[in-house]
Amino acid sequence: MEPLVHVTGRGVPLDRPNVDTDQIIPAAWLKKTTRTGYADGLFEQWRQDPDFVLNRPERAGATVLVSGPNFGCGSSREHAPWALHEWGFRAVIAPGFADIFRNNMPNAGLVPVLCEPAVVAAVMAAVTADAAAEIRIDVAGLTVTCEAAGVRAAPFRLDDEARDRLVSGLTQLEMTLRSADRIAAYEAVRAPWLDVTA
């Protein structure tokens, strides 16, 4: 994976609560067996509206999506963060994420930027008003800056493990394989009643 130490770019405002993964990538796109080929499916239904924010020429090349609470709710499909990544996004700023989606994001090369609602509201207003407004996310330092919003080094929450992975570019699997001995040791003492295959 590509290390993600900083994300700097323009924002796309999607000011809606409960953006679900069926909207991010409709189920018809889930019949592929590859990890790529999903960008055209991103918000496919909503993009049919020519005024939808992702269709606006001034939003082309933006790398940070700004949205409402409970972003990524619904299905566990990792195709949703894959599609966002392939479109060009590297981070999503929201006051709340659905759990599974939040777990999937770093594995797909996306930074979940979980901020205080007031910070998200300020950034939302700034990027809505100005498509050129710049957002800077310091992944290692867990802060977000958007001068146009008056937001300077506002902290965001991400657990250390996910942050270290994003910054190092190591996958979770590569990290865990270093603990193979611990897994074997656990298996040797696991209670027999937990073995559903016995």
């Binding site: 990792e78 599974i100 777990n103 999937n104 594995n107 996958t171 865990t176 394989l177 193979a180 897994i183």
Partner: peptide, 11 residues
Amino acid sequence: GTSEIEHVLAT
């Protein structure tokens, strides 16, 4: 997610 499925299969 799918990356985690791979993780579970392997470990």
